[in-house]
Amino acid sequence: MQGQRGSEVALLLLIAGFAIWLAQDAARRSFSFENLVLMVPVAGLILLLCGILAVAALRRAPQEAGGGLARVLGLLALLGGLVAGLETIGFDAAAFLFLLAATALLGERRPLVLLAYAGIMTFVIIMTLGFMLPYEMPTLLLDPPR
C-alpha cells in the first residue's frame, strides 16, 4: 500500500474513527432517543460508506502521490506556527515571520522584496485590524490606534 491509496485509506480510517468516537461520546453523555436520533444513523452510514470506499481503494492499482506535498505540509506548518505565535510573540511579529517564511517557501528569493512585502503587509493589516476589532491583540512593536 503506497502513495495515493495509502493516503485515502488513512483518511477513511480517520473519518470512521471520528464517527465512532463522537457517537460513543454522545451515548456516554445520554442514551436518550432524542440525543442519538440523528447521531447513530449518521455514524452507522459513515462506517458503511468508509468500508465501501476503503475496499474500492484497496482494490485499485497503487498510484504515487501527486507532487508538492512537502510544500503543502510546510505551509500548513507555517500556519500552525502563526497560530501559536499570535498570542505568544505578538500578532505583528507572528504575521511578519509568517509572511516572510511563506513567501520564501513559495519561491521568492530576493531578500529586499521579501522584507518589504512582509513589512508593508504586516503594518497595513495589523494596524487596520487593531483599530477595527474590539478584541485585544497583543503586539511586539506596532501600536494600533484604538
Binding site: I15, F18, A19, W21, L22, D25, A26, R29, S30, S32, E34, N35, L38, M39, V42, A43, L45, I46, L49, C50, L53
Partner: peptide
C-alpha cells in the same frame, strides 16, 4: 454523501438541542 455526512457529524459537536454535551 460521505463528505456531507461528515459535515453533519462535525456539526453535531457541542451542546445538543436537548442540552447534552457531545464531543
Amino acid at each position: 454523501l460521505l463528505a456531507g455526512l461528515l459535515g453533519v457529524m462535525i456539526g453535531m459537536i457541542g451542546m445538543s438541542a436537548r442540552g447534552d454535551m457531545r464531543g
